[in-house]
Design a protein around this nucleic acid. Structure first.
Length: 211
DNA sequence: ACATTAAGTGATT
DNA sequence: AATCACTTAATGT
């Protein structure tokens, strides 16, 4: 039941009336790993409330070069989507399921109404906007100030936390795409990390020993 | 056995 | 840190 799923997190922060409304208008969906949820240029019709799993949010330039910005996890929502959605803008970001995830989709139309009606909702949105902004700043710091070797290690340890598994099933090429660098560079730096005993390398698999 | 894909490496910019 | 060019290793058919 939807209500039971909400209990895990949202019941604590939302008043019962709001929970009832979420159940009434929200669409529960289970998405598989690698499923595309929102592409660049899409218009928003729904806002996601994350129940479980993780969504990778990335940005792409006109050359098709991609860069990962941050991840959405349980209890998160994409407030950028929310504010853009109210103005019916097109998405500037892409969201892909990083792992199997459970999400409730709320139609945009309801959100403005709830802003006025429920202060728990208003608080939630403001709070979420703030954490999204902080994640964005962290992403900028990483891009601007960290060298590639540090970025790769950060990427690995972030991913371990999100997947809740120190063994990552990924290729060097995939990492290169997420960080917008080349496979050769990734391979070399991973080798370096292996020599420092921070990780162990296998084919299609990386074991992170330190994170 | 052969083809395909992932990963490792030296040399160059 | 990127690119090239090539090698080696693992895996699929």
């Amino acid at each position: 039941m939807l209500k039971d799923l909400l209990n895990e997190y949202y019941n604590i922060i939302f008043e019962p009336e709001l929970i009832e409304e979420i159940i009434a208008v929200g669409a529960y969906k289970k998405v598989k790993e690698d499923e595309l949820l929102l592409d660049i240029g899409d218009s928003f019709e729904y806002i996601p409330l994350m129940l479980s799993g993780a969504i990778k949010i990335s940005r792409e330039n006109d050359k098709g070069e991609e860069i990962v910005l941050y991840f959405l996890e349980h209890g998160d929502t994409c407030t950028i989507t929310f504010v853009s959605g109210l103005q019916s803008n097109k998405s500037k970001i892409r969201g892909v399921a990083e792992r199997e995830s459970e999400i409730i989709f709320i139609p945009i139309a309801k959100l403005e109404e709830w802003m006025i009606k429920y202060h728990s909702w208003r608080e939630y949105v403001i709070d979420s906007y703030n954490t999204r902004l902080n994640e964005m700043i962290e992403a900028i710091d990483t891009l601007a100030f960290m060298k590639m070797d540090e970025r790769i290690f950060k990427y690995l340890s972030d991913k371990v936390k999100i997947m809740r598994d120190p063994v990552l099933h990924t290729t060097h090429q995939d990492i290169a795409i997420d960080l917008n660098t080349s496979r050769v560079v990734v391979s070399r730096l991973l080798k370096q990390l292996e020599n420092e005993q921070k990780i162990k390398l296998y084919r299609n698999k990386i074991e992170v020993l330190e994170y």
